[in-house]
Amino acid sequence: MFPLFVAETLIGLSIGGRLFLIAVGLSLIFGVLNVLNFAHGVFYMLGAYGAITVSALLLDNFWLGAAVGIVAVGIVGAIVEFGLIRPLYDRDEAILDQLILTFGVAMIVHELARMLWGSQPRSIPTPGSLDFSVGILGETITAYRLFVIGVSVVVLVGLWLFLTRTHHGHVIRATASDREMAAMLGVDVPRLYTTVFLLGSLLAGLGGALAAPLQAVSPALGDQIIIDAFVVVVIGGLGSISGAFVGAMLVGLFQAFGVQYIAAGDLALPFIAMILVLVFRPRGLLGEDEVL
């Protein structure tokens, strides 16, 4: 039954692409700053709301709305890092304190979103320019879904090139592997941290904005999505970008096939996978120590 697999694979890749866009920023931030950002989910939610709200204001142009939303999320992220997370870096229990602190941020943003947009889920139509179907091996898929898969690949490749081929990328990787050494060599570590956090938040916003036409958006979205993101980054390896990609695609394919072939209980399986990875390969399936 070959064609059947094509359908599932396409759906799986589409889910995977979306998951990757959520997880990659989280993983990047953890890889460089050693901060597990609980607020990443609400940033994603903000990105989605940003795209919806702004595009409604701006001539119904989804792309413009998305762009503004993404930038806004990036700015929020940078402010959070600068104002709240930064004072905690030199604590003894920095990692746990930062985790709890970002959790507080998530609560606040969640509530603010509810005040601003209400609890009712919202949605937005697929942007007209990509609202058509494409046939692949006898199956059809909307062009927008293909576009999201494409964006996730572009992000992966772009980050890869950025981190391996540019000066800034080298500095970031050096700081990730040895912050003291980097500081000694004259890197302005605090500023670099803020920049990376900004970048990670931009990616969360991008994921949210692009997902807006694909799912219902509500303030509780962040609470759900952060868990998916945790599953993905743990499976791929916390702090690893290629790991996030592999993890996202695995989980996406898994969900697509799981719906078809596992009668019930498939909701628990990603968590069981996460547990197994943590028990047997805590560094993730790829087992890399590098940010890449």
Binding site: L36, F230, L238, A264, G265, A268, L278, P282
Partner: peptide, 23 residues
């Protein structure tokens, strides 16, 4: 540290998933 927090989180979420799907 973080890995402990994550594994306990996933155990509870696995249980949550089982409860909600009630296989």
């Amino acid at each position: 540290e973080i890995y402990f927090a994550l594994i306990t989180l996933s155990f509870s979420m696995a249980f949550y998933a089982v409860l909600i799907q009630d296989p």
